[in-house]
Design a protein around this nucleic acid. Sequence first.
DNA 1: AAAGACATAAACACGG
DNA 2: GCCGTGTTTATGTCTT
Length: 425
Amino acid sequence: VGPQLVMPPGKRADGPSSGSVAKGLSPLYQDQLYQDPIPGDLSLALSASLSRAQDEELTSLSWLHESTDLLTSLGHSGLRSVSPLQDSQGYCESSSPSPSNSPKSSGISPGHGRKPPYSFSCLIFMAIEDAPAKRLPVKDIYGWILEHFPYFASAPTGWKNSVRHNLSLNKCFKKVDKDRSQSIGKGSLWSIDPEYRHNLIQALKKTPYQPCSPQLPTLSSPQQYHSRPLWSGSPLFRKNGGVILQVPQKVIQHGTRLRTEGLLPVIRPLPISPLGRTTGVRSERGRVRIPCSSLSRNDPPEECSSSSSSPHTTQPVCIQAQKIIRVVTEVKKEPRDFPLSTTMVASEQPIRRTNCTKVRLLKPGDTLPLKKRRAEKFPPSDNEDEEMKEAAGSLLHLAGVRASQSKTNQNTSKVQREAEKDSPD
DNA sequence: AAAGACATAAACACGG
DNA sequence: GCCGTGTTTATGTCTT
């Protein structure tokens, strides 16, 4: 039985060669990019954000968030078209209200009807990262999720089981030996395994952004740019008081000129796949759907158009924004979508739960506890590669901590920790 | 269609 | 004995 691992969209556990990576924009996206030009202010704002990121050496994640927020602000009319699926808090409404036939579908699908777009892995990740000590007992993880996503307050308690299930099964999370002087009650402290932090960053980055504040400002009042950040607990959000970026009108006009002169690259299709499977909004059962790009092909247009009075076909604009963010982000920071080391870890999992639950393949070592088997199966490399450093830096930046100020114990490998745990002497 | 990711449910063990 | 925690298994849904 292989452990769960947060995999970036487009990646398969059987290695990069079988995935859908680096196959270029799909014809659909290229059509949209060419035939549905982005308003100048939108593309300019993105470009301005990119330039700022380059100037200030922002990490990829914060740049992404800022850019996303910016696009939210500028593309208000288009983004609003997504609103039928989302509420003002960025939560998602079921896109397929028909109940599942499965008797097991009675879990997190209450009448409340909205749930966060984040997977449990991302929720746990955010909770732990939001903790000053970067470690939390499961009870506090519950609390964080409840605090930030009230959806779960009225949800059946099965979600807690899912949280625990994720903590146990997802190798991105590891237990921290509890200081016996601490009296936190039962259970352990949970933290992020630095080895797999990048996976979580990837997952979080590619989780659909949920803007859709119904009170979004108009373009005529750029000083009011305000949008909800990726998650309200983000230090980035707190640091800026909720106002992420403001682009002066002059810059916008300049950018519009640049764009019309073909000097801005953001519309150019790039030879990478900009969209992962997590683009879009979650459906009733928490799956991620592509909200409007698919709707534009398969669903009635009114589901996307909403009540926008924009002369543009606003739906493609918001889709384009998300795509462009991914395009430029990946070009900027990620020549490889996924660190080789992590890909190796994933690709070395030939046995997945799906395949082995019915006929479990026992091997010599399967009698060991799961995490020991993992440690034996996936020995960590001794040296960190540059991308792990970058990923850690991204998270530190995201958490509002300068990388130079925080020396995490990334040098301590999981195997070492496990060994230490096993041999208390 | 197959494989993979993820959600959900449930059983069970363990310890406070 | 109860409850919370942690692990594991099973299964369904959805995406790629």
